[in-house]
Structures are given as C-alpha cells and as structure tokens.
Amino acid sequence: MLIDCRNIRYRYPNAEAAVFADLSFCLRGPGFHALFGPSGVGKTTLARMIAGNGPRYEGRIETPGVARTLYSYNLERLPGWSCVGDHIAKVTPPSRRERMADLIGSFGLEGCIDARFSQLSLGQKNRANLTRYLVQDFDLLIMDESLANVDETTREKILLKIKGMFPDKGFLYISHNVSEVAKFCREVVVLRNTAKQPQAVSIAGLDLAPDQPLDKSRLERAMLEIVHAA
C-alpha cells in the first residue's frame, strides 16, 4: 500500500460547501500514479494533506511503508543569489552526484546550469526544481503540476526517465493532461466534486515503460474512462 485515504472531510475556511465529503481511495504499490480532476476540485489541498503540510481535516490518511514524502509544485523558485547548477549541487548528497549529472543531462538543463533561476524559461524552472527533488532521499514524491510549461516531447522523455530510474519509489503525479496520465500512470485517481459519489474513482492507466510499444486502443479506452469519470 502506498497511500490510503479514508473518509476525508474538509471545508475551506469561510466556504459554505465542503471540498471533500467522505473522500476515500487507496493506491497500491510503488510506481507512477496520478491524481486527476478539474480545477478547483481540491487536488493540491489533498496532495498537501498527504505530504503532511496541509490543513487540518477529518478522516485518516495513511502511507504505510513510506518513511519520507516530498511534495513539489510548479510555482517553486530557487534562490537567486547563485546559479542554478550551484544550488542543485549544494542540495545533492555526495553519493548522488552521478544521478544529478544524469538528470541534468536527461532533462536538458546543461545549457542553463550557469544561469540564475530568474533567467530561465518557465519550463526550465520546473525541470530544475524537479531535479533537486529527485536527488533527495524519498519514498513518495508528489509532483503537483511539476512539469507544467514543459513541451510534450520533453515531458514524455522526463516521465520515462523518472520511471526507469526510480522503479521502487512512489510518485503521485498531478496533471490536467488526460493522455499523459493515462499513458504513463499505473493508477489514476479521478477526483470529482462533492456532488458526485464516490468522490474519487480509481482507473487503471497503461503504465508505459521505456521502450514499451504503445497500445493505442488501450490508451483511448483509458482516456475515455478517465474523462467519463471526471
């Protein structure tokens, strides 16, 4: 078991309606999973709750076998007093220097490691931010739109790289791209508004691995299921 959420209830301060009403779902085993749903449905709030730095809620969230959860999001910034390469190197444990170099190369960041963070494009910023998380010690990494503004080809390359590099780790990928979550994720938790019950529906994705051929009809079916559930 990776994440077990049971009967989560939560209402934003000063809001009339609850954002979560008896929300329950569970994700099994390591691998690449997704949290999918329309804007404003509470994906980020739920992700923060799972990471342990969200608001107080009713219910139970358990992450058995997960000693360390990290949460990354697309608006994060690196400090501006030195270049991106220095910042990433500084937070990389010595034993993971090789991995860092590999990730910088695979994520197409070689050209900008000597630049300040503010000089990067939005896509480069997100890739640089994700790189520093991937060289940390973690069991579960929540990627809240961490690849936003990255072009589709590079995004696919990055996702496959992560899947190949961390087969034993858990990932919860938050994205609005239905084909991406259907193609690369093992389980897709579709989060819906409180009017629909159950509020979360789990759908199996293709969990595409590097060098694995894509079954287009399976992908279309998975996509349809996700869209229908949402």
Binding site: A51, N53, L70, Y71, S72, Y73, L75, E76, R77, L78, P79, G80, W81, V91, N129, R132, Y133, Q136
Partner: peptide
C-alpha cells in the same frame, strides 16, 4: 513560501538560510 518550501520539506531549513532568503528576496 515558494523558495522556502523545498528547504523545509527536505529538512534543510536553518534560521540563517531563512534570513538569507527573506533578505535577498
């Protein structure tokens, strides 16, 4: 928050770093 989050999450935040980030920003 957008800068401090990483250091807090990874247990790297120290008061000196916190002051440095806020002063720089």
């Amino acid at each position: 928050v957008d800068i401090e989050h990483f250091y807090t999450m990874t247990g790297r935040m120290r008061w000196q770093l916190e002051v440095k980030i806020r002063a720089f920003e």
